[in-house]
């Protein structure tokens, strides 16, 4: 179980800004989030960077209840 932070278009597609999602690795959590939220969330995730605690992480990165996973779609600030 990890805490998902869903930002911008990812938040809109999921309908929530935060979610608790099961999984022992980053890949598991994202797969479960994709199953929960469906399309178009899945398509946005495919275009996004995935951060664990603010840092890039590989999909096999182990995650737990204290970790925050951010889904970061392409940005448009400024």
């Amino acid at each position: 179980m990890s805490r998902l932070l869903l930002l911008g278009p990812a938040r809109e597609a999921a309908g929530v800004g935060h979610a608790e999602v099961d999984g022992d690795t980053l890949a598991d959590v994202i797969a479960n989030a994709n199953a929960r939220f469906g399309v178009p969330f899945v398509e946005i995730v495919a275009r996004s960077r995935l951060w664990v605690n603010g840092e890039d992480a590989p999909l096999d990165h182990a995650v737990g209840p204290t970790d925050e996973i951010a889904v970061v779609p392409p940005v448009s600030g400024g």
Binding site: L7, P9, A70, V72, V75, S76, G77, G78
Partner: peptide, 13 residues
């Protein structure tokens, strides 16, 4: 600073 902000800061418009 403004160029880097636009590339590196999580912000959506």
């Amino acid at each position: 600073c403004i160029d880097a902000l636009k590339r590196t800061v999580p912000m959506w418009k």
